[in-house]
Design a protein around this nucleic acid. Sequence first.
DNA 1: CCCGATGGGGATGGTGCCATCCCCTCCCCA
DNA 2: TGGGGAGGGGATGGCACCATCCCCATCGGG
Lengths: 208, 208
Amino acid sequence: MHRALIVEDQNLMRLALMAEIRAGLPDCYVAGAQTLQIARQLLTDDQFDLVVTDPGLPGFDPTSVEDRLHVVEVIVAAAPDAAHVVVTGSDDEMEAKACRLLGVGGYVCKTGLSHGDLPRVLDEIGRGAFASRLSTSGSLDPDMRFPTLTPREDQIVTMMMRRKTGTRRREVFEKMATKAGISPASAEKYYKLARAKLLKLGRLPKGL
Amino acid sequence: MHRALIVEDQNLMRLALMAEIRAGLPDCYVAGAQTLQIARQLLTDDQFDLVVTDPGLPGFDPTSVEDRLHVVEVIVAAAPDAAHVVVTGSDDEMEAKACRLLGVGGYVCKTGLSHGDLPRVLDEIGRGAFASRLSTSGSLDPDMRFPTLTPREDQIVTMMMRRKTGTRRREVFEKMATKAGISPASAEKYYKLARAKLLKLGRLPKGL
DNA sequence: CCCGATGGGGATGGTGCCATCCCCTCCCCA
DNA sequence: TGGGGAGGGGATGGCACCATCCCCATCGGG
């Protein structure tokens, strides 16, 4: 995977998807298009081996299955050799099957797509499977984002607040250490730092 | 603005909106909810002074104006003193007016919302205006994101590629310098570095 | 012919985050 | 009463990015 194209009209979502791709495929050039016209232009100018498409593009009726599949068809036809993923806001198993028949390798619902999921989807596609991720998922915990916390601090705070009641902090440190590839002591350090910052701000949440 | 809540079911979009808020309001605590239930819980547990809501939540029909306005109504009722912004994928001037009547201060279409826009919307609301941003916008340039480029390098490369034909590079450096608060020489430096990296990768686009 | 725009380098200090390893209290419970 | 969990510190080196300032070569046109 060296060159990817994201076709999505919502700017922030397109940027987010591009960031996901870049995080998962560090050496990947990523382009973005907000309309079908731009997408076709880019696909004829360049060669891409991954195309992520939201079929709800401007100029088409997002509620019309016909319009949506037409977008997918055009994109797939413009890059028949690329791996294709359809990312959609609305969730439709029938549409997923239709996309598959059009040559799409993955069908993902935005509702069920979290940070870090896309690489797994690409893995599945790479192994020849049809990757389908509908909105059934998943963690319905509220998000929290605190000011002045670094990413690591934020990470351990989030994990700590979401731990099941009765879990020792120790265990969370170890889980975090495993997930991040660092030592549990460092995880504990980040937790302490984060806690101190939040205390100073008077924003210490209940879960400590 | 010290405490903000983002009500949005699409994980990546919620994260992106939370990041936008954090970038614009550096000292702001930002929470996220993916369902109306979680949002109500958070709004009763805590006090928020800004709530950003996408009315297309799970359990409601995103195409039903009634369902959508009901979501907005519940959220506004749960935080009557907060500033409210509705962020929507579909664009409806009538819905915007209805939201305004419900006490919402801003109505923004995701299609027209780019990185850095939200603070401007909040400014308008802060000045007592009803901020409406429909999908009329805007720049329809393709996005590019290159691997191994640092943010600064990416920034100047993007600006350079989007310059009007005939614009001197010099002028772009100055524009970038003004926008980023750095010296034109530094902007030029980043451009040169980026160019060198892209050359080494053999990925130098046409605009140089 | 020199100047300005362009292209290609290197050296600098500063900052923030990462990841370690270390120290110290306090309290509760076994 | 001792030890482990919890809280509150500090010191370290490494690294990436930021922002500056400096050098050099080429090339075109006034």
